[in-house]
Simulated scan of single mutants.
Amino acid sequence: MRILVVGAGAIGGYFGTRLLNAGRDVTFLVREGRAQRLRENGLTVHTPEGDLHVEKPSLVLSNEITTPFDLIVLSCKAYDLQGAMDSFAPAVGPDTAILPLLNGMAHLDALDARFDSANVLGGQCAIAATLNPQGEVVQMTDMHSMVIGERAGGHSARIEAIGAQLGGCGFDLSVSENVLQSMWDKWVFLATLATGTCLMRAPIRDILAAPGGEEVLRRLFLECQSIAADNDHPPGEATLERARSFFSDRESPMTASMLRDLENDAPIEADHIVGDLIARRRSKVEGASMLEVAYAHLKAYESRRAR
């Protein structure tokens, strides 16, 4: 199976390297600047278990794509989605499967509008990773999972074949019969983490140490949970219990990557992760909406940054 990984940043670089290390046929679609650095230095991934290095990864520029790929793994930021679709469009054939690992749901609408919706799978990943100043991937914790599935639910020969390719590659893979529920579960969790840590400019442990901090996280989570229920994807009890434990851990140093982006004066996914979630609300909020306050905070940052 020919696999095209769109980008060689933190997410694409990590999972693509894991796939390469397991002998899969992987090519990275990159821009010229990234390609030049990778040609000179190779692709390095620092993990808690040790380093991985690919001396000469297979690279391609968009204008060099001549034939379709079997699987396209898409891991860009939401604000880069349009450009990413333009770049990998030449790699999409009638039987190409597109596996997006973006957060939220709005990207599915954009991909369906651009390509045949039958080509677009559901998927999500959980990993804390970043690029260091040398352009190397740094996995910050031992968490590295991926969930994939057919959006219509159930299993198919296609998803089983893709699962066989992605499985056994050094990260945790699940082939889900209800991948949309997994995507909603992550969205609820991530939106809470992103809005909470960005609004308070602090990791979980420091928010919990602040007067009223625990209540802020609780109210954000309940709002996000309620919107998922509005859309017929309420988190199950096991998911709720994990979230409650996570957001009450007074030793947790966790923040969202959105906070790191904000602190680095970088673009953020305010609309995709928070704004689109609010737009899908159906039930009335009792009292002030913490989620809307957090969204206003993020949009004010974007306005100031643009100015």
Rank of each mutant, 00 (worst) to 15 (best):
1 M>K: 00
3 I>H: 00
5 V>I: 05
5 V>S: 05
6 V>F: 03
10 A>H: 00
19 L>T: 01
21 N>Y: 10
22 A>L: 02
29 L>K: 00
30 V>E: 09
33 G>D: 13
35 A>R: 15
40 E>S: 12
44 T>H: 12
45 V>P: 07
47 T>Y: 03
47 T>S: 08
55 E>D: 10
60 V>K: 04
64 E>I: 09
64 E>P: 07
67 T>A: 10
74 L>G: 03
77 K>S: 12
81 L>A: 07
82 Q>A: 15
84 A>Q: 06
92 V>W: 06
98 I>H: 10
99 L>M: 14
106 A>S: 15
117 S>V: 10
118 A>Q: 15
122 G>H: 08
123 G>E: 01
129 A>R: 04
130 T>V: 12
133 P>R: 12
136 E>N: 12
138 V>H: 04
139 Q>F: 07
140 M>E: 14
140 M>K: 13
141 T>F: 05
142 D>G: 09
147 V>P: 00
152 A>K: 13
154 G>N: 10
157 A>N: 12
161 A>G: 02
166 L>I: 02
167 G>M: 04
171 F>G: 01
177 E>A: 11
182 S>G: 13
183 M>W: 01
184 W>L: 04
184 W>Q: 00
186 K>V: 03
189 F>M: 09
192 T>M: 00
193 L>P: 10
195 T>H: 11
197 T>E: 11
199 L>Q: 13
200 M>A: 15
201 R>Q: 15
202 A>C: 05
204 I>V: 13
205 R>A: 09
211 P>N: 05
212 G>R: 01
230 D>V: 08
236 G>V: 06
251 E>D: 15
252 S>E: 09
262 L>N: 02
269 E>A: 00
270 A>M: 04
278 I>W: 02
285 V>M: 02
286 E>Q: 11
290 M>Y: 15
295 Y>S: 00
305 R>I: 08
305 R>P: 06
306 A>I: 05
307 R>W: 07
